[in-house]
């Protein structure tokens, strides 16, 4: 399941949905949150823009790629857009597999590709009221190397 939405999500509901499938032996989930500090500067809130249409296509493609590499029985990606406050949930990735190895690896793979391929952009409002588009991080690009 893939969702791009403004509203928050409930981890318990998402987890139970993954758990309801048969033959599941492992569920690995990741949640990304709005941090109150970025590159040493205090952040007061965040807005997230995306490219409607391409975003959903891109996330479907990332899951398809992951399914070619690992045994995935069920998966969920939820990414929020719009205005978000500190500590709010931004992204949820849940992978259900027969075994934990596949679930761990697939969850990390999905996040690494989402961070570098999916058309989302963050804009931070700093404590002093100034706004700033977040720059892409080289570390995120390097993280892809382990899947080459």
């Amino acid at each position: 399941m893939i969702k791009v939405q403004e509203q928050d999500f409930n981890q318990q509901i998402e987890y139970e949905r993954l758990r309801s499938k048969t033959s599941i032996g492992a569920i690995v989930t990741f949640t990304g949150l709005v941090r109150d500090i970025n590159q040493g500067q205090s952040v007061s809130d965040l807005s997230l823009e995306h490219y409607p249409g391409m975003t959903e296509k891109c996330l479907v493609e990332i899951v398809e790629q992951a399914k070619k590499r690992w045994d995935i029985i069920e998966s969920t990606i939820i990414h929020r857009v719009g205005q978000l406050a500190i500590s709010e949930q931004i992204v949820y990735v849940g992978i259900a597999s027969q075994h934990r190895g596949d679930a761990f690896a697939a969850c990390e793979f999905v996040m690494d590709y989402l961070k570098t391929q999916a058309p989302f952009w963050k804009k931070e409002t700093m404590a002093d009221g100034q706004t700033k588009w977040v720059d892409a991080r080289e570390d995120d690009q390097l993280a892809l190397n382990k899947w080459a």
Binding site: V91, T116, P119, F120, D135
Partner: peptide, 10 residues
């Protein structure tokens, strides 16, 4: 055709 900066989601 879309032009955009490097992406920063997640």
């Amino acid at each position: 055709v879309a032009f955009f900066p490097p992406v920063t989601g997640g």
